[in-house]
Simulated assay, not measured.
Amino acid sequence: MSTSTVLQGRTALVTGATSGIGKAVARSLARQGAEVVLSGRDRARGEALVKEIAAEGGTARFVAADLMDAADTLRLASEAGAVDILVSNAGLYEFAPTAATDATSFDRHIAVNTRAPFLLVGALAPGMAERGQGSIVIVGSSAARQPAPIGAAYGASKAGVEILTRYWATEFGPAGVRVNTVSPGPVHTEGTQAMLGEHISVLDTTNARGRAGDPAEIAEIVSFLAGPASSYVNGAVLFADGGERSTLPG
Rank of each mutant, 00 (worst) to 15 (best):
T5G: 13
G9W: 12
A12G: 05
A17I: 04
T18H: 05
S19F: 11
G20H: 01
I21R: 00
G22F: 02
K23I: 07
A24M: 04
R31H: 15
Q32C: 09
E35P: 04
V36E: 02
V37L: 13
L38E: 00
S39N: 11
R41V: 06
A44P: 05
R45H: 11
K51H: 15
I53Q: 03
A55T: 10
V63G: 00
D66W: 05
A71K: 12
R75W: 08
A77R: 01
G81V: 13
I85R: 02
I85C: 05
S88P: 06
N89S: 04
N89K: 02
A96R: 11
A99S: 15
A100W: 11
D102Y: 07
A103W: 11
T104V: 15
A111H: 03
V112R: 00
L124N: 03
A129E: 10
R131L: 11
P149E: 12
I150G: 03
I150Q: 07
S157L: 05
K158M: 13
E162K: 08
I163K: 15
L164V: 11
L164K: 05
T165D: 06
T170L: 14
N180S: 12
N180R: 09
V182L: 09
V182P: 00
S183Y: 02
P184W: 00
P186W: 01
P186K: 02
V187D: 00
T189H: 03
T192H: 05
Q193N: 14
A194V: 11
M195Q: 13
G197N: 11
E198S: 15
D204M: 07
N207W: 03
R209I: 08
R209M: 15
G210A: 07
A212D: 03
G213K: 00
P215Y: 03
A216K: 09
S223V: 06
S231V: 14
N234M: 10
G243Q: 06
R245S: 10
T247L: 15
P249D: 10
